[in-house]
């Protein structure tokens, strides 16, 4: 798949299929169930891009983003979702934490 992100961010296209998710619940479920290598790859690719993404999206109304821009924002939100896994936990789930199957994320 190509052409789903705004032009300047074409190198992130590879992450769209897995991480272009609109709700926190979807992003969280993906992080919990994906192998950590996939979270690491997203994190590494997005970290240097977060500031350019924020700068690029500053010209748009965030409540009415066109589809490519919304996808870009969703990737940035997925970056934050995996940030704990990559930076702190070194694990998709919280080590020693409450069972995620019993923890309900409503939004």
């Amino acid at each position: 798949m190509s052409g789903q992100l705004p032009g300047g961010f074409a190198e992130l296209e590879a992450f769209v299929e897995q991480w272009d998710l609109i709700t926190e619940r979807e992003r969280h479920t993906t992080r919990l169930t994906a192998p950590i290598e996939q979270s690491n790859a997203l994190y590494d690719a997005l970290l240097p891009q977060i500031e350019p993404i924020a700068e690029y999206l500053a010209d748009f109304d965030i409540n009415a983003l066109p589809a490519p821009e919304q996808s870009l924002l969703n990737l940035a939100l997925s970056f934050m979702e995996v940030s704990l896994t990559v930076e702190c936990l070194k694990s998709p789930t919280v080590p020693g934490g409450f069972a995620f199957e019993r923890f309900e994320v409503l939004f």
Binding site: A54, L57, A58, L77, L84
Partner: peptide
């Protein structure tokens, strides 16, 4: 802004974990 939305996501994710 998108930047503020990205920042908020960090609060959510951190608190949740």
């Amino acid at each position: 802004t998108a930047a503020e939305k990205i920042a908020q996501e960090h609060t959510k994710v951190l608190l949740r974990d």
